[in-house]
Amino acid sequence: MLDLVLPLECGGCGCPATRWCRQCARELAVRPDQPHLVNPRLDPGVPVFALGRYAGSRRRAILAVKEHGRSDLIAPLAGALREGVVRLESWGVIDSSVAFVPAPTRRFAARRRGGDPVTRIARAASLHVVEALRSRALTRDSVGLSVLDRQRNVANRIRLVRPVRGDVVLVDDIITTGATATESVRVLQTHGARVVAVLTLAHA
Rank of each mutant, 00 (worst) to 15 (best):
R82I: 00
R113K: 09
I94V: 14
V130C: 13
E89W: 01
A109C: 05
I121S: 09
S135Q: 13
R134M: 12
R111A: 13
V101W: 04
E131H: 12
F108D: 14
G115C: 07
E83V: 00
R82Y: 00
H128W: 07
I94S: 02
V98H: 08
G114S: 13
F100H: 03
A99Q: 10
R112M: 14
I121A: 11
S90C: 02
A109H: 13
S135E: 10
I121W: 05
D95V: 02
D116G: 10
A110G: 14
H128C: 12
P104W: 06
H128K: 15
V129R: 03
R113N: 09
L88W: 03
A99L: 11
D116V: 06
R136I: 01
R82N: 01
A80D: 00
R87W: 01
R87V: 04
F108R: 15
A99M: 06
A109S: 15
A124C: 13
V86K: 04
V118I: 15
P117S: 11
E131G: 10
V118W: 04
P102Y: 07
G84A: 01
R106E: 06
S135W: 01
I94D: 03
R87C: 04
A78I: 00
V85K: 01
V130S: 12
E131A: 11
V98Y: 08
R113D: 09
E131N: 14
F100A: 05
V118L: 09
T119H: 08
R134H: 08
G79D: 01
L88Q: 02
G115W: 05
G92F: 12
I121K: 12
R106F: 01
V129L: 07
S126Y: 13
P117A: 09
R87S: 15
P117H: 08
A132Q: 09
V85T: 07
A99I: 01
R113I: 04
S126H: 15
W91Q: 10
W91K: 10
G115T: 06
R87N: 05
D116H: 13
G79R: 02
R107N: 03
S135F: 02
R112T: 13
F100L: 04
A137K: 10
G92W: 09
A99H: 14
A110K: 08
S97R: 14
G92C: 09
F100M: 03
G84C: 02
S96L: 01
D116Q: 14
A80M: 00
V118C: 14
A99E: 05
G114A: 12
R107H: 08
A132Y: 08
T105I: 07
R123C: 05
A109Y: 10
S90Y: 04
G114D: 09
V85E: 01
R120P: 02
